[in-house]
Simulated scan of single mutants.
Amino acid sequence: MRTGSEPVTARSPLRMRLWLSLWGVAWTLFGVVAFSLADRPGWAAACGVLLAVTAADFAVILHRMHQGSRFQPGRDVPPFEPDHGDGRTRRPWTKTP
């Protein structure tokens, strides 16, 4: 749903986030292997935690990309209404003064 305030040609940063998360997965995996071979279990564990975080980020990005560009929230999520110029936003579930 368009609110009217975003540009028509706006693009999603998901592809950039996908490549950055892949880069993070590669480096953290390298860190886990390198620190394990160097007998540094603390650093290997730290890289393992970062690997889990970057892998979860990668999964979320893939999920969002598979939702498609026309994904809209369900009926229980009210639409965002832009600022009407007086500095306040009017929400459809509240009464107008």
Rank of each mutant, 00 (worst) to 15 (best):
A46I: 04
D76C: 02
A56M: 07
P41D: 11
G48Q: 05
L62F: 02
L20G: 04
G42T: 12
L20Y: 05
T54Q: 15
R17T: 00
V53N: 05
D86I: 02
H63K: 13
P41A: 11
A55L: 14
P92V: 14
K95Y: 05
G87K: 03
F35L: 13
V60Q: 15
G68A: 07
G68M: 06
P92F: 12
W93N: 13
T28A: 10
D39K: 06
R90M: 13
V49K: 10
R40G: 04
R2D: 15
W23R: 13
L50S: 07
I61P: 00
R75T: 09
L20Q: 13
R91H: 15
A59H: 03
W19Q: 14
A34G: 06
P7Y: 09
Q72Y: 04
L22Y: 08
T3K: 09
W27K: 07
T3G: 12
F71S: 13
L37Y: 02
T54E: 14
V33E: 09
R15Y: 14
G31E: 06
P82L: 04
L29C: 08
P7A: 14
V53H: 04
A46L: 09
L51Y: 02
L62I: 06
F80S: 11
H66P: 00
G85A: 14
T96H: 14
R2W: 04
K95F: 05
R11H: 00
R64M: 09
L62K: 05
F80G: 03
A46Y: 04
F30Q: 09
A38T: 03
A26G: 02
S69I: 06
G4Y: 02
S36I: 01
R91C: 12
R64E: 13
A59M: 07
V32Q: 06
A52R: 07
T89Q: 11
W23V: 05
A52W: 08
R75W: 09
R11D: 01
A46G: 02
D57M: 08
A45E: 11
T3L: 11
A56W: 12
L62R: 14
G48E: 02
P92D: 15
P7V: 06
T3R: 10
L62Y: 02
P97H: 13
H63G: 09
L22I: 08
T9P: 01
R11F: 00
R2G: 08
W27F: 06
A46R: 02
L37V: 05
H66Q: 12
P82R: 07
R15I: 07
M65Q: 12
F58K: 00
R17E: 09
T54D: 08
L50E: 02
E6D: 12
G85P: 03
R88Q: 14
V8G: 02
P73N: 15
P73V: 08
H66L: 08
F35R: 11
R11G: 00
L14I: 06
G48Y: 01
R64C: 07
L51V: 01
G87V: 03
L14V: 03
Q72C: 03
W93L: 12
P82D: 07
G24Q: 01
V33T: 12
T28D: 07
K95D: 12
D76R: 06
R88F: 10
V53T: 06
L29E: 11
A52S: 15
R70G: 10
G4C: 07
L18G: 00
R75D: 11
Q72N: 10
V8Y: 10
H84N: 13
S21V: 00
L22W: 03
R64Q: 14
R40L: 13
D39S: 10
